[in-house]
């Protein structure tokens, strides 16, 4: 069961603001979901290869060719804030 601290921690990792008054309800909902998930954890899966993909294939490779051209004006038309071809964001401190 997730504690309130854990809910806060994952909300922070996921960069989603949760108002303090919403935390308890969220915790309850998440725990209900983990309650549903719980029965899966008890299954004996020793020796079972994890299945990450729905197809049993290997990665196809593309040839090393430049196929894309400059479309930044089009792409930046839908951007929240741009200047001189750059996307602008609040100051990044390294």
């Amino acid at each position: 069961m997730l504690s309130l601290d854990e809910v806060r921690r994952i909300a922070d990792l996921a960069r989603i603001e949760v108002p303090p008054e919403g935390l308890a309800a969220l915790q309850q909902q998440l725990n209900a979901i983990f309650g549903l998930v719980e029965q899966m954890r008890a299954v004996d899966t020793a020796g079972v290869e994890p299945m990450a993909h729905a197809v049993d294939m290997s990665q196809r490779l593309r040839e090393d060719r430049v196929t894309e051209s400059d479309r930044h004006a089009e792409f930046q038309f839908i951007a929240p804030q741009v200047e001189d071809g750059l996307y602008l964001v609040p100051k990044v401190i390294e």
Binding site: R65, E68, H72, G85
Partner: peptide, 23 residues
């Protein structure tokens, strides 16, 4: 390489900002 690892955009150095950033 001439193109990027997962896309067909050029890897050439020194282009104007975001002109070699494809979809």
């Amino acid at each position: 390489t001439a193109s990027k690892i997962f896309s067909g955009a050029s890897t050439a150095f020194g282009a104007a900002p975001n002109t070699q950033a494809c979809a």
